Computed example of a mutant assay.
Amino acid sequence: MGQCVTKCKNPTSSLGSKSGDKESSSKSHHKKGGGGGSGGHKEEPSAPCSKATSELSNGTKALEVTVETPVIPTVTGEPRKDEFLDGDGLSMLRIEELFCCYKDEQEDAILEEGMERFCNDLCVDPAEFRVLVLAWKFQAATMCKFTRKEFVEGCKAIQADSLKGICSRFPCMLLDAQGEENFKDLYRFTFQFGLDAEEGQRSLQREIAIALWRLVFTQDTPAILERWLDFLAENPSGIRGISRDTWNMFLNFTQAIGPDLSNYSEDEAWPSLFDTFVEWELERRKKEEEQALMAMEEEGKCTETETECSPTTDRLETEGSRGSQTWGGH
């Protein structure tokens, strides 16, 4: 999956930190080695805080001023003295700082632009299955949007407080989504996730439903899925939207009805759209069988014609050979 690197240029700026003004005046100092025989000196990494000093003309030193440089846990992964860890060892401060890296300037939520950067830093495509599973774990109410509460509670649910932590949870989340009850929950969540809550939608647009069906069945694709999606795509005039009932029942349909559709019954309580689909699919298969049969018959006629022509050709070749022998004899 590749390394996950935070691309947030200055995370503290979104938190209102003013430490950047002080850092420009601070100087790092080096600690010289002890009085050993080497006489050299060894440089050590600068501490989180550095001391700026100035020397007066009489050789005395002025008052030392300590300038603290804050350590940003979302970048370094190191704990801070002021951060609070919950019972699972998660840092609430780091989760909040991570959220603020991507939140919108006007709204207290991660919107489309921030979501794109967030997915890019996680090394995932915004349209892939892992992002859908992450949204399910975060219980996001709207596509391309994480509210602060959804993000914080979601990170707590998957036990991650950094980009690296979220990346490391993907394999477990994908495995978790394969469980029968969990997948049913994910499947039903996907319908709600695809609705435009602000518009008050109650059914999915046909194109969005097709895309979400293909996405949610990424790990375990039913044999009938592509035929169902072809049916929806080829009948735009008769299908305006997909209702919640149709969406939920299609999962039952894939589990109860075999690929050959032989055990489907219109007498059962299936949505009427399923009746139309089964009729369309059986008619399509009938036409395919007829076309295949016609192709076989055409191929058979060609074979018979070739067989009939073959003896004549052989006879001519034989007679030609005899003629050559006769002329050669004279």
Results as ranks from 00 to 15, higher is better:
residue 273 L to I: 15
residue 235 N to G: 08
residue 189 F to G: 02
residue 187 Y to D: 03
residue 224 I to K: 09
residue 227 R to P: 02
residue 272 S to A: 12
residue 195 L to Y: 14
residue 251 L to F: 13
residue 266 E to L: 10
residue 221 T to G: 00
residue 271 P to C: 05
residue 178 Q to G: 06
residue 262 S to H: 08
residue 218 T to Y: 15
residue 278 V to R: 04
residue 225 L to I: 04
residue 152 V to S: 00
residue 193 F to E: 03
residue 236 P to Q: 12
residue 240 R to Q: 15
residue 149 K to H: 04
residue 235 N to A: 10
residue 184 K to D: 07
residue 179 G to W: 13
residue 244 R to H: 12
residue 261 L to E: 12
residue 211 A to K: 00
residue 183 F to N: 08
residue 148 R to C: 01
residue 183 F to S: 09
residue 222 P to T: 00
residue 276 T to V: 14
residue 252 N to T: 14
residue 243 S to Q: 04
residue 281 E to D: 15
residue 196 D to A: 06
residue 205 Q to V: 10
residue 246 T to V: 14
residue 206 R to L: 07
residue 191 F to C: 04
residue 267 D to L: 11
residue 151 F to L: 03
residue 285 R to Y: 07
residue 197 A to T: 01
residue 263 N to D: 13
residue 177 A to L: 06
residue 199 E to Q: 14
residue 176 D to S: 12
residue 148 R to P: 01
residue 245 D to A: 05
residue 174 L to S: 06
residue 251 L to D: 13
residue 214 R to D: 15
residue 206 R to D: 05
residue 194 G to R: 00
residue 159 Q to G: 00
residue 184 K to Y: 11
residue 263 N to V: 12
residue 241 G to R: 05
residue 222 P to L: 04
residue 258 G to T: 15
residue 258 G to W: 10
residue 233 A to C: 06
residue 183 F to T: 12
residue 248 N to L: 11
residue 188 R to F: 13
residue 266 E to H: 12
residue 269 A to K: 03
residue 190 T to S: 11
residue 205 Q to F: 14
residue 282 L to N: 13
residue 159 Q to C: 05
residue 202 R to A: 10
residue 271 P to L: 10
residue 264 Y to N: 11
residue 157 A to L: 06
residue 283 E to Q: 14
residue 275 D to G: 10
